[in-house]
């Protein structure tokens, strides 16, 4: 049995604004063991980033509010920790890589200073020692250590993302949350950065939550996958189970919309409709307005999580036996 690192139970995060309550995350459960990689997949607005910020306890407040749930990390509930303790965890035990490397580095500090900053905050080293370690971290991500005196604008996008990865891994965290780390990069650089993250993750034995909307990226890097829709995890399983045997109509739709290399198709086959407005989620199953298999009951009854065995969980009335497929 692997050691459990992160156990999120019933996490609910809403943004309370003048125009209504944005139900960004609605009671999700996530489990992650040490060294494992979870792919969190979903469309824009599915609540992936909010989940990540929730784990870091960085949901902007106001308007964001963590309404309920537990985030157990190494046995402590992060939601109950005082802010000062939480600061000691951020960047040290849990790190985050943001989507856009162009804006997640401070433009007026050299990359060496920014790397040294996180090392100094958590390891209490002297300036010189921190800079030395910063150089080593840069070398580790494939940037010459001598470039530690350069400013972020002197690096290309891919190199900036490497710097960001170096910052995130500088204190050897237990958990790395990568929020669409490759979305802002072009495809060849994406592959490089993913390889780098995969290699370093194995080297440091770091668990990772990889947020993405690219199933290809998931297939390459992850051990487990959770599919998010409208703030809920609709299906979660091991990588093989999910790719070989997807169950939820939404997951099926996602796979259906990927064009097949071998067949000539005139048009792509998307999931019809759009993501529901998170201030006004549909009744019953949030996916029912777009679901090809939806029946009347789906409009009324909220599906529960059904365990199909081997850790494969799905939230759909079909698998509760209430609706015929």
């Amino acid at each position: 049995m692997k050691e459990k690192l992160l156990d999120i139970k019933n996490l609910t995060i809403h943004y309370i604004t003048d125009d209504g309550v944005v139900k960004a995350v609605n009671g999700i459960d996530i489990e992650l063991n040490k060294g494992e990689t979870l792919g969190l997949v979903g469309e824009t607005g599915a609540g992936k980033t909010t989940t990540a910020l929730g784990i870091m306890r960085l949901v902007p407040n106001p308007p964001g509010k963590i309404l309920s749930g537990e985030i157990n990390f190494e046995g402590n509930d992060l939601l109950k920790l005082p802010e000062g303790e939480m600061r000691k965890i951020r960047g040290n035990k849990i790190s985050m890589i943001f989507q856009d490397p162009m804006t997640s580095l401070n433009p007026v500090m050299t990359v060496g200073e920014q790397l040294a900053e996180v090392i100094q905050i958590h390891e209490g080293l002297s300036n010189e020692e921190a800079i030395e370690k910063a150089k080593k971290m840069l070398e580790l991500v494939g940037i010459p250590g001598a470039r530690h005196t350069d400013y972020p604008h002197q690096f290309s996008g891919g190199m900036k993302q490497r710097v960001v990865i170096a910052i995130a891994l500088a204190c050897n965290p237990q958990l790395l949350i990568a929020d669409e780390p490759t979305t802002a990069l072009d495809v060849t650089i994406q592959a490089q950065v993913l390889d780098l993250m995969k290699r370093l993750k194995e080297e440091f034995n770091t668990a990772m939550i990889l947020i993405t909307h690219d199933l290809g990226v998931v297939a390459e890097v992850c051990d487990k996958v959770a599919i998010m829709y409208a703030g809920e995890i609709v299906e979660s399983a091991s990588l093989e189970d999910l790719f070989e045997n997807p169950k939820h109509p939404y997951t099926l739709g996602l796979f259906g919309s990927i064009p097949n290399l071998e067949e000539e198709v005139e048009r792509l086959n998307p999931i019809k409709g759009l993501m529901p407005d998170p201030t006004n989620l549909p009744s019953g199953c949030p996916f029912h307005p777009r679901c090809p298999k939806a029946k009347d009951l789906c409009k009324i009854q909220v599906p529960k999580t059904t365990d199909l065995g081997n850790g494969h969980k799905v939230r759909c009335l079909i698998y509760e036996g209430l609706v015929e497929a």
Partner: peptide, 8 residues
């Protein structure tokens, strides 16, 4: 936000 995320 990134600075906050490293525990500053």
């Amino acid at each position: 936000e990134a600075a906050r995320a490293i525990g500053a």
